[in-house]
């Protein structure tokens, strides 16, 4: 187990280092940011002065080593716009909002899909399958941001029942979570349904029936655990994507998450913040994947942890 964990951690570190390197050179490839950061009236000397202060006049490799060493000390450099504020701080203070929104939506989406897929198979109902998959696909055909706008229109503007913007309390979760969870729903229903369908024709399922086990019990205790294994890997990838990709939904609901900071950074050309954001997302990606791997090896006795 320990060996396995260490190997995964080394792989994870390599992934993060890779993203870090790409992020660094992407930023430097665009040239020195001095000109972009100052007003149009700035003289060449002022620009050069700023580049000097920010360290952009040094050799590229030296900058990279400095940057990489900084990252390992938790120092991602300072915001270009506000040199007094470390970039990582701007991202980190928004991280809890993003993670809690993504996790809540993920859990609710998966639980709904699980209930739907189980009901399809427990009742062996093609009608239920058509209902859930078509319903979910139609929902998926509405872009998340438009669904969010409609949800705001109905529940906040017309009904006045729920808060629409920002975070004012637990009720603020309802609309964005509903938007993300329903958008992801059909993805998980499809995955679970096809995994369960695959399991249903396995020999061990027939053996379980031959023991005299009831259909519901076979679905829940024999098929489901086996079906969850492949779905878990996909769901893990998806959760990682969700952590980085909920930017659009965050924007619709003015959610005080990382997305807002990143979008603002784009309009202000503050690459330092984007860099910190990318690294944080890469870290979360890696963490989720390690968690999935560990879970997988705990659940599947065939996977040896050596």
């Amino acid at each position: 187990m320990l060996k396995f964990l260490i190997r995964r951690l080394v792989q994870a570190a390599a992934t993060v280092l890779c993203v870090l390197t790409i992020a660094f050179f992407l930023g430097r490839a665009s040239g020195k940011p001095g000109a972009l950061l100052l007003t149009d009236g700035a003289t060449a000397e002022q620009i050069d002065q700023l580049n000097e202060t920010l360290g952009f006049n040094r050799p590229l490799l030296a900058q990279y080593v400095d940057f990489a060493l900084g990252v390992f000390r938790g120092d991602f450099g300072s915001s270009y716009r506000n040199p007094s504020i470390p970039a990582i701080e701007l991202v980190a203070e928004r991280l809890p909002a993003t993670v809690s929104l993504a996790l809540t939506s993920f859990v609710i989406g998966v639980v709904l899909a699980l209930a739907a897929a189980l009901s399809i198979h427990v009742f062996r109902s093609r009608k239920l399958r058509a209902l859930f998959i078509w319903g979910g696909s139609l929902r998926q055909s509405v872009p998340d941001f438009f669904f969010g706008v409609l949800a705001v229109l109905v529940f906040s503007v017309v009904l006045g029942a729920l808060p629409s913007l920002g975070f004012t309390g637990p009720a603020s979760y309802v609309l964005p979570v509903m938007t993300i969870a329903t958008g992801q729903f059909v993805l998980y229903v499809r995955l679970l349904d096809s995994a369960l369908t695959e399991q249903s024709s396995q020999d061990y399922v027939r053996t379980a029936y031959a023991r005299g086990k009831s259909h519901g019990a076979v679905v829940a205790t024999e098929m489901l655990p086996n079906a969850l294994l492949p779905v878990m890997t996909m769901a893990g990838l998806n959760l990682a994507g969700l952590l980085g990709g909920a930017v659009i939904v965050e924007q619709v609901f003015a959610w005080p998450g990382v997305g807002e900071v990143l979008i603002n950074a784009v309009s202000q050309r503050d690459f330092a913040i984007v860099q910190a954001g990318l690294l944080v997302v890469a870290l979360m990606f890696v963490v989720v994947n390690i968690v999935v791997d560990v879970l997988y090896s705990v659940l599947d006795p065939r996977v040896r942890l050596s």
Partner: peptide, 18 residues
Amino acid sequence: LAMPVVLLLIAISSVTGP
């Protein structure tokens, strides 16, 4: 596959402008 489009575009746009 592992790179979310939105983030990639955010990263490049923050340098070049959208």
